[in-house]
Amino acid sequence: MTRSGCGSPVATGPLPEWARTGFSGDSSMPHVLGDRGDIVAAIFGYPLAVSRPDGPSNKILWVSKATAPPGDLVIDAKLDGTAVTETRHVSGGPGPSIVDLPRAGCWHLTLTWPEHTDTMDLTYQ
């Protein structure tokens, strides 16, 4: 999928109902829903940043809408308007991760885990 601009809005209200397992009380937090609606990125270190000398990490909890067979989540990221690409792996599939990317800007992500693929954009400052 080719895009221009950062097309995935960061919501700040409650997580989708299917993504609230393990949360108690209000599940409102910054999050991005995949374009197909199959995965959500719950962003604990918002805003995401290239450098965090004294702040929180770029912690993202990836939550899949459907149960998937065991296997890693593979994140293929492309920086908008460039040829810069990065790949990250989350062992064991969607779950907690630290996703650091090397440059500021809008990153187009293709997320692949067993039997599933979704896409989204994440902006790093």
Rank of each mutant, 00 (worst) to 15 (best):
I60R: 07
D26R: 14
G13H: 04
D26Y: 05
L122D: 05
S24K: 13
G25M: 04
G25Q: 02
L48K: 01
L109M: 08
A68F: 06
S8R: 05
P70E: 13
P96T: 12
T117F: 02
N58I: 07
G5P: 12
I75H: 01
L122W: 11
L48S: 03
S51P: 00
D80N: 12
A42R: 12
G93Y: 03
P69K: 09
S91T: 15
R36W: 00
W18H: 11
D80P: 05
G22N: 06
T12I: 05
P14K: 14
G92T: 08
D118Y: 04
T82G: 02
T112Y: 03
K59H: 14
Q125Y: 13
G93T: 09
T112A: 12
D26E: 10
T119D: 10
T82I: 01
P47A: 05
Y46M: 10
V90N: 04
C106V: 01
F44S: 11
H108L: 11
S4N: 13
G22L: 05
V40H: 00
E86G: 03
E17L: 10
G34W: 08
C6A: 03
A19L: 09
S24V: 14
A77W: 10
P102L: 08
K78M: 11
A83M: 10
I39P: 07
F44I: 01
G37C: 04
I39Q: 05
H116E: 15
D38C: 00
Y124V: 09
D72W: 00
P14A: 13
R36V: 02
G81V: 05
G105E: 11
V63P: 01
P30M: 08
G25N: 09
H89N: 13
V90K: 01
M1Y: 06
D76C: 00
T12G: 14
L111D: 01
P114E: 06
H116I: 02
E17S: 15
G25F: 09
K78L: 14
A19I: 03
G13M: 08
T12K: 15
M29Y: 00
G25H: 07
H108A: 11
V50F: 09
D118H: 05
T67D: 15
D35Y: 06
A104P: 05
K78I: 03
T87I: 10
P102M: 08
Q125K: 15
S91N: 07
T110C: 02
L73K: 04
R88V: 13
G34Q: 06
V99D: 09
V84H: 12
L73H: 11
W18N: 07
H31A: 02
D118M: 07
D118F: 07
L15K: 12
G92Q: 07
A19Q: 12
S57N: 13
D80Q: 15
L73S: 09
M1I: 14
M29I: 14
L48Q: 08
L48I: 06
I60G: 04
S8G: 10
K65R: 15
H89I: 15
I60S: 02
G71D: 11
G25T: 05
C106R: 01
G71K: 10
G37P: 00
